[in-house]
Design a protein around this nucleic acid. Structure first.
Lengths: 112, 112
DNA sequence: CTAATATACATAATTTTCTTATGTATATAT
DNA sequence: ATATATACATAAGAAAATTATGTATATTAG
């Protein structure tokens, strides 16, 4: 993701979450969906996305299915059973992380 | 920070925010404060913290002041004027990032 | 009709940012 | 006496991005 130096480490979880919601998606679709959902705030770069998808597949969390649409190749990814279980764990971790960050950033704890 | 692979990229902003709140802090104090504020969720490692402090200082965002307490050296860091301005920007970025992450993770947008 | 933009994949080189492993030194608690 | 806590530091290595390419087809704009 260009623009934001911050999100590092959360890309895999984002991918898993999107696939969990949509059932199956292809790479380019994921980049567009993230742009849409974050109103352009986060832009997944191809150099980050494709290696991430390949790694998740190699880890057995994703399955691929190749399709040809309008004479162009698409690779649809979907969660495996293992992937679905991992998604639950990683989402919980990410939400915990977000909560922690808010504790750090939001409150004026120095007043006490 | 051990435990969480997620927070990458946000350490600098966390440091700036803590210094903004407290006025001045030393390295070890920062590690303990983060542990406290996140209930042990995030643990800043020394290998991450000290290089980060040195870099922020080199960038002109922090000033150092060496003190000797109980025969042990402490290095107190505080924001420079430039550092204060940067803190505002980076906090805004971080909050925006957190909001984006929540948009990605929370809602069941696939229902529509 | 042709040039730019969008769609769709991929990878290599490099950089950033950590973790892990050390190292030094003092103070306190067991 | 030994372990733990306080307090700094850095080097080696790993992880996860960015940036820069590359290929190829489809569509839109001038």
């Amino acid at each position: 993701m260009a623009n934001s130096k911050l999100y590092k480490g959360s890309l895999n979880t984002i991918i898993l979450k999107l696939l969990d919601e949509k059932g199956k998606m292809y790479g380019y679709e994921i980049t567009q969906k993230v742009k849409e959902l974050t109103k352009g705030e986060l832009t997944i770069t191809e150099g980050a996305l494709y290696p991430a998808l390949h790694k998740l597949e190699a880890e057995g969390l994703l399955d691929v299915e190749v399709a040809k649409v309008d004479n162009r190749i698409r690779k649809y990814y979907k969660l495996t059973e293992v992937g679905e279980k991992e998604t639950v764990n990683r989402l919980a971790e990410l939400e915990e992380f977000i909560r922690s960050m808010q504790n750090l950033v939001k409150p004026n704890w120095s007043i006490q």
